[in-house]
Nucleic acid binder design. Structure first.
Lengths: 329, 329
DNA sequence: CCATTATACCAAAACGTTTTTCTTGAATCA
DNA sequence: TGATTCAAGAAAAACGTTTTGGTATAATGG
């Protein structure tokens, strides 16, 4: 690959590289004519300053890094929201997809980003320590860390679980089922809140009515199908840990000849775009994913401007009533 | 932000920076004891070689760049597929989201990527010329460019449009409607194929039966609703330029009291994940999006290994029969 | 006419690496 | 013993920039 450097431009223009640099950046003093000529030549030669060379010298790169394990589905929405906010604040955004916390840290320390948003379950305590030492402004999106240079944005999963139970209770349902997502911190918290509320109300969750959906449509579909084959009494209502498992669950119910919500109410969680398009339109708890991503990036941009760190933004769920839940007679 | 450099390690270990570099990379000759000690110290200090410094020297960075205007929806799926393939080939992947072809080019030339996949409608002819000069191995995912260093992966949109018409014809439908996506090259081609086939069969598309959906659910929904208010005869079948507009279209039909497919068949295009979950399950043309992304990255990886360039991978659509289309009596 | 100032430009240092070349002292060989 | 090789490591150059600190030449002031 050929690379056109500042030297090439300097040679072509018959000036020093200093002059080229100054001409292009608008710095220094020189004849307007020289400046124009150099700019013209640089343009004609399609010269673009090398990012490595430039930023080796510079202390700031104008770039914020986003570190995640995936940009699929849920993560894609978060990252996309960050992008908008990042640009709105005049920063470039770089996305780094990494498998492990180790590689994350390596990239974090070796690449020149001015700040970072981290959304990675592989990031562990030992990594936190190193991050702390690096003094890089950082926002975490999936855990609570508040130190110097570090803020976090958190979704209140426990409260959401409680909210789900409370809502279904308020509709008059008492025999509840849940399809939990047990593979993430988020899922565990949602479930804990749900179960706590039921226990407090004196209707603790029965073992047969706890299904494992792993936040996955097909897993939830399979679990539900299996449950239906056991011919146990149908629950009044089901809380699915996310919209995806709600869809899987509804599919199994519909295929077995049941009607949602006439025979059983189903409550989802997330409010992904599909939910309003589904038939029946899904009643769900909005987790404000776009808001989560935007808030994280906004907080980071604030940190960059010197705002005080150590903040915690707690984002709360909100019930979106549609057609998949109904009041018990 | 504090940065630990090779100098810091050298000072701490009481050796030269050369020795540190050699010790860490396993190069050069030195006492095993020295090597071990330096490695140990570097680890303890959490030293990570700076990417800028390193790659300023190196000719290859082991990184492939993906250039796109968005990672939302459709694009997210493509990019995600690329990521898998990229890592499988031992490369790191960097995603650059840019607004314009100009900024794309700027990043392309200034960042050190070994190769690039471009999926950006803002990339224009004048940019192609510059790219050509740079000799960077590149794969385009949305247009046909085949030159030295450049290959392309294309979805056969024209053929897909024909296929759609042919399929609906084969079901016995004659009065066809289409909701086209006129804002992209892809959409224009799909539509052209669709209309050509109808013309050839002697049933040219009537003007009232051509709706503009811009590949968008809500736009399609609005257009369809507006059409229904005009009380023109319902078409036998509708070809929506993508699944999203199919959903919008079906929603409008259902709200107006019609049944899909009993009253009208609807054929989508893309086969996004939701399609099989929708009610009715959407009959659609699979565009193999994951395959498109993976193929592009695989081709790029091949280019990197010196495979000959200038290839064109044409990906064909395939009808997925589900529940939204039925045979005419 | 000498000292000062302004103009227009350039040389060199610095950024953090890797790599090539060089130095030093010890060991081996003839 | 003097020449040669080897080991272990260091100095220096290179990568492409920006920035700091010059250096000529011309213009100005007294």
């Amino acid at each position: 690959m050929k690379r056109i450097t500042i030297k090439d431009v300097a040679r072509e223009a018959g000036v020093s590289i200093t002059t080229v640099s100054h001409a292009l950046s608008g710095q220094g003093v020189m004849k307007q004519e020289t400046r124009d000529r150099v700019v013209e030549i640089a343009k004609k030669m399609q010269y673009m300053p090398d990012w490595n060379g430039r930023n080796l010298k510079a202390s700031e790169t104008g770039t914020l890094g986003v570190f995640t394990a995936s940009i699929k589905g849920y993560y894609g929405i978060l990252v996309d929201a960050m992008y908008e906010e990042c640009h709105a604040n005049g920063y470039e955004m770089e996305i780094f997809i990494t498998d492990s916390g180790d590689s994350l840290l390596q990239i974090l320390l070796s690449r020149r980003v001015d700040g970072a948003v981290i959304l990675h379950s592989g990031f562990q305590e030992r990594h936190e320590k190193v991050l702390q030492d690096s003094e890089l402004p950082t926002v975490f999106l999936d855990r609570e860390i508040q130190t110097k240079y570090v803020s976090s944005v958190l979704f209140d999963s426990y409260q959401t679980g409680r909210m789900a139970a409370e809502y279904l209770f308020s509709l008059g349902h008492r025999r509840l089922m849940t399809i939990r997502g047990e593979n993430t911190y988020d899922g565990i918290e949602r479930h804990r809140g749900f179960e706590d509320y039921l226990k407090e109300q004196g209707y603790p969750l029965e073992a047969d009515y706890l299904l494992n959906g792993y936040f996955d449509r097909w897993k939830a579909y399979g679990e539900m199908k299996q449950f239906l084959e056991r011919k146990l009494p149908l629950p009044d209502a089901i809380f699915a840990a996310n919209d995806d498992s709600a869809f899987g669950c509804i599919k199994a119910l519909v295929e077995a000849g049941y009607n949602v919500p006439a025979d059983v109410s189903v409550l989802g969680c997330d409010d992904i775009e599909l939910s309003q398009w589904y038939v029946p339109a899904l009643t769900t708890i909005c987790t404000h994913m776009t808001d989560q991503g935007a808030t994280a990036m906004k907080e980071l941009a604030g940190l960059m401007r010197g705002n005080c760190s150590g903040k915690l933004h707690m984002i709360k769920g909100r019930i979106i009533e549609r057609a998949s839940c109904r009041r018990a007679e």
